[in-house]
Amino acid sequence: MSSRETVLGRVRRALADVPRGERPDEAPVGRDYLRVHGERSPGETVRLLREHLTDYRARVHHCSPASLPETVAELLARQGSRSVVTPAGVPGAWLPQDLEHVADSPALTPHDLDAVGSVVTGCAVAVAETGTLVLDASRDQGRRSITLVPDHHVCVVRVPDQVVGSVPQALERLDPARPQTWISGPSATSDIELNRVEGVHGPRTLDVVLVGEESSMF
């Protein structure tokens, strides 16, 4: 007998008390928890996102679509990066011309990425209640490793369209078949005396740019 059959056989014998013919959905699951905690206008949801991102030491900025290139340039300059990697879906117009551009490609090795200063991406969805950005490897987000190895991540969030209130609302928008990274603040650890310290293996600086008209923030 294969191990597969052994394990499945043991499972079935262990469940002798479950009535034959019971369907999985006959085992009750109450879904009376909230879809979102509290009622907020889109502007209030964006403000909550901003507050919660800041709580976990992400640096949050806000600008209009027209001034996005200027904001990105400022953030890259502040970091002192001389090179930036971007996925195919990030328009070249977002980036300043005075530093080296590296295009995301499966040919890039981890060592190549380690030599790059910053990464600029979009996101799939942002969650206000938890201060979370979700990347799902779409064209403006790229492969998972480009937002991991460089020490500085600039993530652009279109507000209010890309912002949801809660975790249940975020999952509804996402496709499990796509590889995802949920990011809540820069890399951190609580391993030393259970105190949170920012900055371990992932990017130590996370700049979040909320892009939208002034009205979308209030």
């Binding site: 938890t130 499990p176 590889p179």
Partner: peptide
């Protein structure tokens, strides 16, 4: 994803959560 981070590290959400399904072309 609501129960675990708050019970575990007492955070609204842990810094990183990765999800993957099988293997993806050129990513991972």
């Amino acid at each position: 994803l609501q129960l675990l981070p708050r019970s575990s590290t007492a955070e609204r959400m842990n810094p990183y959560t990765s999800t993957w399904t099988g293997s993806a072309d050129g990513d991972g």
